[in-house]
């Protein structure tokens, strides 16, 4: 019952592994395609810049590996953005698993969007036991548009996708690994899918 955590040139990967430890689940940080393909669950985390992350994934062949996964996959933060179609961040073609574009916040508010914000219209088993309007932790400057696969929304200047789900692919813009008890519940829900 292993979960593979995709290792690539993005930050905060270790904190996801620690979050699994706190839930007493086994997680392996790896960039080995075989290990990723054979895992029961895959987490695709990361904080960083879209174009250099995509380039790294392509060089390692991990872009195809991720796209072809059939087991439950959870993207987090940059992971969610890379699972979309296109990112305005350095005009990056992404994995195109979700039909959404990633745009930069265009507001008079502070950017990055850092801190605890509320999630609404929760509609997925991912949010079982999590109340409407719960606070989770965000840190990002780009957001994925709302689309038909949005399973949670948040507002910061405009409304955007806090979480997206299509087939076996689920992703959150917020960091469940840093979102206190709500985050722990969401991670646990994913691991129990």
């Amino acid at each position: 019952m292993k979960t593979a955590i995709v290792k690539y040139n993005a930050g905060n990967i270790q904190s996801v592994a620690f979050a699994l430890e706190r839930l007493c689940r086994e997680g392996v940080i790896t960039d080995d395609p075989k290990q990723i393909e054979n895992a029961d669950k895959v987490i695709f985390p990361g904080v960083g810049e879209a174009s250099s992350a995509m380039r790294f994934l392509e060089e390692k062949g991990l872009d195809r590996v991720i796209k072809n996964l059939r087991q439950p996959v959870l993207g987090i933060c940059l992971g969610l953005q890379l699972m979309c179609e296109f990112s305005e961040e350095n005009h990056t073609q992404c994995l195109n698993l979700f039909p959404a574009k990633v745009k930069r916040f265009d507001t008079n508010l502070k950017i990055p969007h850092v801190g605890w914000n509320q999630v609404y219209n929760l509609r997925s088993p991912l949010f079982e036991g999590v109340e409407e309007g719960s606070f989770v932790y965000f840190v990002h400057s780009y957001f994925a548009e709302l689309n038909q696969y949005t399973i949670a929304g948040t507002e910061y200047g405009n409304r955007f996708s806090a979480a997206i789900q299509f087939n076996n692919f689920t992703a959150t813009q917020f960091h469940p690994e840093r979102s206190g008890k709500n985050g722990e519940r969401i991670l646990k829900n994913f691991l129990d899918l």
């Binding site: 620690f18 979050a19 706190r22 932790y137 960091h175 840093r178 979102s179």
Partner: peptide, 8 residues
Amino acid sequence: IAKNLNIP
């Protein structure tokens, strides 16, 4: 700290 804390 990172192992034990669930906030940033």
